[in-house]
Write a protein that binds this DNA or RNA. Structure first.
Length: 730
DNA sequence: CTCGATGAGTTTTTT
DNA sequence: ACTCATCGAG
């Protein structure tokens, strides 16, 4: 048995973790310390050396991407497919469990998954039904309320009736929502986890079975687990002490969506025999970057403690740039990227990271102007697009007529003359008689309560769905989908729509057929849920994995993304921008100390993304929500050791610089550095080719519009546009 | 149904 | 400032 390939490339700590005898283990893996590597090699070790069957292993991740990567790397290491290993996201695994035991878990065999947009729509519908104003009951907040409770394991019936009328109302909405989901066979994301937990908790036989089966449970990014996820893991492993978790408390950045950093403490309490292994050697960044990151995170309290180190040398210092405003900041960053590419750097190895997505625009504009290709992460993903969701809604309704969410979405899409009146009538009928919308429609067709025209049209819709359903039977999946988008009129509808967007929509619909074909060819995950039809499996897949944001993997693009999205990634050249109080750390986090620590961890995550070069920038003035704001530099900048940083431009110690980087560069001062004399301040002496010696009195504008007022000794006071005046500093 | 006016909200994201 | 959604008029 060749085990050298499994352990030869590992360092001491990694090897300890990989080869430890099976028992509870906590691997504290710092950024860039080979976390995934340890997980992958650990699994390989279990199989090769401990003779563990892949059947006995459960490996859990947070994203599909991470699950895919792990599976790929294991298969590569062992050179055989790890087909029957349960490996996936919490939600994916919960789905699998519930499909197998739908009945016992109290769900219909063909339950369908609601994504958060579906959930949002459903809640709005309930509000309308309860005649509540969206302004006083914002659906987003209700969504948050419901999911929050579910993530803590609380159903509506568990909530104590409150004396607070607002709270009572929320509970009522929650109850109503549960009823509706139950009726329509719908399961939202939080429900998947909650159901899976309740099912195991309440079915001793099933619990025993899975406890027996999963001799080894491994969890990635453990610091991101929420209460119900931990409870589920604990159910499965508490009797066998067989939970191995990998995580980093310093990279916990999802507290705001329910992640419980406390789970790390719960783990230590619940598995008293656990072993802790720290991975502190970093293979990613230079010494300067790591030192700064360590110093920053040291400002947080109650850490489990960890100090990253590297033996790869100090590297360049971290560069700080104080921009005049957001325009200047963007110009500076993009100009540095231009140089990087010019010197042979790859755009793919270069990332701009920001706290809020709205910040991307400035950079995009400048990148476009410079003709540098870029990619922004974080938009709508494939299965979230309107036209795709429309098509999926047809498929949902075709497989399950009681899916009210789907019914409501497509009853009049494409427009077929079934208006609000008819739909309201159906809703009332459904509510009054405890029917689903589909059943209400069947009633209405014969009841003669509707105007004749509406009745006919409604009948037409029912016939359409039924006929389509028949025609689709026994066809291959991609054929079914093609039939659905064509016969429903959806394709035609988007074809006729004008505008560029419509074109992409048609393309996307066609792409959906391709995606289905691909899904048939190589179904992701094991072929375990044979209970479901291919179409049902495809729908679950679509809900659980929203797909990539945008294609274009062929072009080497500069990467723009939020700091959150950057977690887990690395780049040679990284810019963290907008380091201002109120922006990063964000305004909302300033009040709560816990939130502020999370912001600091987010900054830590950002710093540790950089392999070689790291730039930190902030703007002294920024347009935000239509108003000009002056902000102090982020406190995080002050928390970095001076010896690891270097200001790109020495700044005037009294007066603020009035010239932007952009104007300075254009007017011939190559990088705007003080040494080159490019930083103009109020009161500074300057020289102009025609007007001679002068002193700067005032300044206004920025970027290409930046102007200064200069009092010339000979020619008097003049306003000059910096970009053209070619002023020389003195 | 489509268009333009009006008004509210505006950190971060995966499933 | 800008986006997004809803609402009323044509």
């Amino acid at each position: 048995m060749d085990i050298t390939s499994i352990i030869e490339s590992l360092n001491e700590a990694q090897r300890t973790a990989v080869t430890a005898p099976p028992h509870a283990m906590l691997v504290l893996a710092g950024a860039g310390s080979g976390k995934t590597r340890v997980l992958v090699h650990r699994i390989a070790w279990l199989m090769r050396v401990e003779n563990v069957s892949p059947y006995s292993i459960l490996a859990v991740t947070f994203t599909n991407k991470a699950a895919r990567e792990m599976r790929g790397r294991i298969e590569q290491l062992l050179s055989f497919p790890a087909g029957n290993m349960w490996m996936g996201t919490f939600h994916g695994l919960a789905n699998r469990l519930l499909r197998r035991h739908a009945r016992e878990a109290g769900l219909p065999e063909s339950f369908q998954i609601l994504d958060s947009d579906d959930q949002y729509r459903l809640l709005r519908r309930i509000l309308k039904q309860l005649e509540l104003q969206e302004t006083s009951w914002p659906p987003r907040q209700i969504q948050w309320y419901i999911n929050g409770h579910k993530e803590e394991g609380r159903r509506a019936c568990h909530l104590q009736e409150s004396y607070d009328p607002a709270e009572r109302q929320l509970q009522r909405i929650y109850r109503e929502y549960e009823t509706l989901c139950e009726q329509s066979g719908l399961v939202d994301f939080a429900e998947l986890l909650l159901r899976a937990h309740e099912f195991l908790r309440d079915s001793p036989a099933a619990l025993a079975h899975y406890q027996q089966r999963f001799r080894h449970v491994l969890v990635d990014e453990f610091q991101d687990t929420n209460s119900i996820q931990y409870a589920w893991l604990n159910l499965l492993t508490r009797d066998n002490d067989n939970l191995c978790v990998v995580g980093d408390d310093d990279q916990s950045i999802y507290g705001w969506r329910g992640a419980k950093i406390e789970n790390l403490h719960s783990f230590q309490r619940d598995y008293p025999n656990h072993q802790i292994i720290r991975l502190e050697q970093n293979y990613r960044s230079t010494g300067n970057i790591l030192n700064a990151a360590n110093a920053l995170i040291d400002h947080n309290d109650g850490r489990l403690g960890k100090n990253l180190w590297t033996d790869s040398g100090a590297g360049d210092p971290i560069a700080l740039y104080a921009a005049f405003n957001e325009q200047d900041e963007a110009y500076f960053v993009v100009d540095r990227i231009r140089r990087w590419i010019q010197e042979g750097g790859s755009p793919l190895e270069c990332a701009i990271l920001y706290r809020s997505n709205a910040q991307s625009r400035q950079f995009e504009e400048k990148l476009i102007a410079m003709g540098i290709p870029y990619r922004v992460y974080g938009g709508l993903r494939f299965f979230e697009r309107q036209e795709i969701k429309d098509a999926l809604a047809y498929l949902y309704l075709l497989t399950h007529r009681d899916n009210d969410a789907a019914f409501e979405r497509i009853i009049n899409t494409p427009t077929r003359g079934i208006g609000a009146r008819t739909i309201d009538y159906l809703r009332n009928l459904a509510r009054a008689q405890q029917l689903t919308l589909w059943k209400a429609a069947l009633h209405a067709r014969t009841a003669n309560d509707l105007p004749a025209r509406a009745q006919t049209l409604l009948g037409g819709f029912i016939d359409l769905i039924n006929a389509l359903s028949e025609r689709m039977a026994d066809r291959p999946l991609h054929e079914q989908i093609r039939l659905a988008i064509e016969n429903s009129g959806l394709l035609e509808y988007y074809r006729k729509e004008k505008g560029e967007q419509a074109e992409t929509r048609v393309e996307n619909l066609e792409e959906l057929v391709t995606a289905a074909r691909q899904f048939e060819a190589e179904p992701p995950g094991a072929e375990e849920d044979l209970s479901a039809t291919p179409l049902e499996r495809f729908l679950a897949h679509a809900a659980l994995e929203a797909g990539e944001a945008q294609g274009d993997p062929y072009q080497a693009c500069v990467q723009l993304m939020s700091l959150h999205s950057a977690k887990g990634l690395e780049f040679e050249l990284v810019f963290i921008v907008g380091l201002e109080e109120g922006l990063f750390p964000s305004m909302q986090s300033l009040e709560q100390p816990g939130r502020l620590e999370e912001e600091r961890r987010l900054c830590y995550v950002g710093l540790t993304r950089a392999q070689k070069l790291l730039y930190l920038t902030y703007a002294e003035s920024r347009r935000l929500y239509g108003k000009e704001h002056r902000a102090r530099p982020s406190r995080f900048l002050n928390e970095l050791p001076a010896e690891n940083c270097q200001e790109v431009r020495a700044r005037a110690n009294v007066n603020r610089p009035v010239a932007s980087y952009e104007a300075a560069a254009r007017s011939g001062f190559e990088d705007g550095s003080a040494a080159a004399g490019g930083s103009f301040r109020l009161g500074q002496s300057v020289f102009h080719a025609k007007f001679g010696e002068g002193v700067i009195l005032q300044a206004e504008g920025s970027g290409a519009q930046a102007r200064v007022q200069v009092k010339f000794a000979e020619s008097g006071v003049k306003w000059l546009v910096l970009a053209y005046a070619n002023l020389q500093g003195r």
